[in-house]
Design a protein around this nucleic acid. Structure first.
Lengths: 188, 188
DNA sequence: GGTGGCATGTAACCGGTTACATGATTAT
DNA sequence: ATAATCATGTAACCGGTTACATGCCACC
């Protein structure tokens, strides 16, 4: 049933609203001031996206009155929205995700612990690792073939992509180790 | 004069056509089979993009006949297209580029040597390094502030971004060193 | 009384995604 | 014959970008 016609921005908004109910303006400030700068803070993107989510029953906006300022509409995640958000987070990670939608994967991981729980975070990380391993492998092979035909700048640009993927794999392993250490010594 | 209404895909196409004249189908194969998988190989994206470039006089298509197959239209970069491509490649790198358009920057670098020359490659790398240094700096600061308020998965996700930026900075320095070594010992 | 920040919105434009369609040639 | 591959295209849809518009409040 989980309707999959929600953009990356839509999920980012739902994740934020799960942490804390907020207005469109609040969200814009978060996007422009924190490390979520990769998302647009333009009103032309955010307000329509909030309306769409509301129309789908995933969030609900209530007008706050009497605060002295102009009317402010605060949005909250609905139970349906929470279910949708959870479903999105626990999706398995494909190679296609790694190649073309890495920021979205990172967003899913960033939200995972608060929204679904630490077990989901570990699950996501292992899924990422599983997708990354053969990907790095294939990149290394492709790199060998490339060296003989491409320009120096082409080869070095490819090297950046390879290093990025290798670094990501190392990061995933470090993250898994961190979580599993946490699980043993930490709170039940 | 350089018209800046060209999408990232448009420049990718021009870069490929500079290396070697090709048909839309050729380009689709390149996108789907090489490390340029981050670009879409869908005909609905590529053929209209080629038409747009042709309408702007940046590329020119000629129909190849008599090869036995169906008609094949091979596109070539025009002088105007080459100038546009060069202008795009040597643009300075901004922080905004790093945060939101990194793949495009990498594409510019990959093409730089063949299209403009090694001096342009070095210029791009130094521009990247200059943009990256303060960016990594600010990320580190933000990371400190984040640790106390975010969830573990949030903190670790941020760490991935930080490592990525640090790795990129190291890569840029390695690339600069490679080019400068090359310049001394290599061919005039 | 004007500037700047708070807060929300809309409309035009553009380009990528998806899906469908077509026709020719080569291999089985 | 017919399936697969070569090769090109189009149309609907959707959402992000850009730019503009509005109105309230606080402060100087």
């Amino acid at each position: 049933m989980t309707s999959r016609n929600i953009s990356s921005l839509g999920y980012a908004l739902m994740g934020l609203l799960h942490q804390k109910p907020a207005s469109g303006y609040d969200v814009r400030k978060i996007f422009s001031s924190t490390s979520m700068k990769s998302y647009s803070d333009s009103p032309g993107a955010i307000y329509p996206a909030l309306r769409r989510l509301e129309k789908q029953g995933l969030i609900r906006g209530t007008v706050e009155e009497g605060t002295g300022l102009r009317r402010r509409q605060v949005f909250r995640l609905t139970p349906k929205g929470l279910a949708e958000l959870k479903g999105w987070i626990v999706l398995p990670v494909t190679r296609e995700d790694i190649v073309r939608r890495l920021p979205e994967i990172m967003l899913r991981f960033a939200f995972s612990e608060q929204v679904v729980g630490a077990h989901a975070s570990i699950g996501l990380l292992k899924s990422m690792e599983a997708a990354l391993k053969p990907y790095v492998q294939s990149l290394r092979q492709e790199g060998q073939a490339l060296k003989s035909v491409a320009s120096l700048s082409g080869t070095i640009a490819f090297e950046a992509g390879l290093r990025g993927a290798e670094g990501l794999l190392q990061w995933a392993r470090f993250a898994i180790a961190t979580y599993e250490k946490e699980g043993k010594g930490g709170p039940s």
